[in-house]
Design a protein around this nucleic acid. Structure first.
Lengths: 221, 221
DNA sequence: CGAATAATGTACTAACTGGTTCGTGTCAAT
DNA sequence: ATTGACACGAACCAGTTAGTACATTATTCG
């Protein structure tokens, strides 16, 4: 964060506004890359939609890939803070689990840009992500949190004992993510609009029920 | 260049070798698009890896998008035939369900190209898929099959009554698909190689157990 | 055979696209 | 007020890329 703007009121001669320019570029770039991919996104198109010029993109981000990486990092920063805000430690295990699922579901649902960027990054074998010092160190607090919930549930004899935290996170994420990432092909094939509110509730209920049913059932062969 | 590969059937006439050329282009193009996306894939790169020239690509497929569409259609043709081969009608409902899940799981696992193409098509809002008369009419036999299994399970009092066939298909697909489509980002973040054999078995078991647990449990609030 | 047609190769281009050059304006601290 | 670093813009450039014109060979069939 930056300190208060130098001239808050009265004169607004301020022409140089680096922070705003940067944010502006980043916002537009997120839209562009999320819509067309890394190769499909055009620097010129971003420059045009921006209040500033192409020169500035290279001034601040060095290259197209640099810009893309910045977009990606921003997207991940957002989700990380969201996960950190989860306070599941005080809830009973089952309630904690349901809260986690609902949160994940809602996050993906309301952040299609993030979902698309992750899809795009997977097309590229996550090479940019690996390059990023920031994302690379992504302290995956969520796994620790899930691990603790699982442990408590186990101790209370509610949860089956053979579930790995990362696996469970994947089970939950997969459904929430897929619903958004594959919205178009799935919707086209099955003639179903996956953004309908009715489906939203039903699917949210379904993934929650499925995970709970799985986790509370004794292991079977 | 022109090997004397005589087709077994008498009616088949061996021309220059259009069929082989077409197939060759299609095969290489699948690799290219699946690796770099539609915008990222280069026609020149495809032409070079092919036994033939760029001229032929345009001769047979008209345009880059035409080629991409042909690649997509071929990929879907393959999965459709696979789904059709499933013979779940004779199995007990639970066994049928587990077979279906295992098949879906294995399909995605061993067809990463298909998974990637679908991801790419979703980036493009499935516009090509919608254009395609072939894919558009994709007779989604799988839904009918699932519906019948569900119906039988319900009648036998094994399955909960409130599950929609398409929803269930999504629940299953999501996990199988995600495992492959998000292999790279997920693997990078959680330092886990999702192509390891140990994980393969564990995940296959997990999705199967989860779906079964869900479907065999009475509805809850 | 020989004409018609299908298949193929070479060389090219027009447009696009990421990135740069060079010059101007702004700000804050001397 | 001068200075030097920072912020900004328009035009430009060089490499790339999808797509083509034209010539040539192969195959089919009367």
């Amino acid at each position: 964060m930056k300190s208060v703007v130098t001239k808050p009121a009265g004169r607004e001669t301020r022409k140089n506004d680096p922070e705003r320019t940067r944010e502006d570029i980043l916002r537009i770039a997120t839209e562009e890359f999320s819509a067309y991919g890394l190769s499909g996104g055009r620097v010129d198109a971003i420059a045009e939609k921006t209040k500033t010029s192409k020169r500035m993109i290279y001034y601040y981000f060095g290259s197209k890939e640099g810009l893309y990486l910045a977009v990606l990092e921003k997207a991940y920063r957002k989700i990380r803070s969201l996960e950190a805000d989860l306070e599941l430690a005080d809830m009973p295990p089952l309630e904690a689990l349901r809260t986690l699922i609902a949160t994940t579901f809602d996050h993906d649902e309301s952040n299609p840009d993030f979902v698309r960027l992750v899809s795009i990054e997977n097309i590229h074998h996550a090479v940019h992500m690996k390059q990023s010092s920031e994302i690379g160190v992504l302290n995956v607090s969520i796994v620790k949190t899930i691990g603790e919930v699982l442990e408590r549930g186990r101790r209370e004899g509610l949860f089956r004992p053979d579930v790995d935290a990362v696996d469970l996170h994947m089970l939950i994420s997969a459904f929430c993510f897929f619903r958004v990432s594959n919205r178009y092909t799935f919707g086209t094939i099955f003639h179903r609009d996956l953004s309908e509110p009715a489906l939203y509730s039903r699917h949210k209920q379904m993934i929650s029920d499925a995970v709970v049913a799985y986790i509370t059932r004794p292991s079977e062969s």
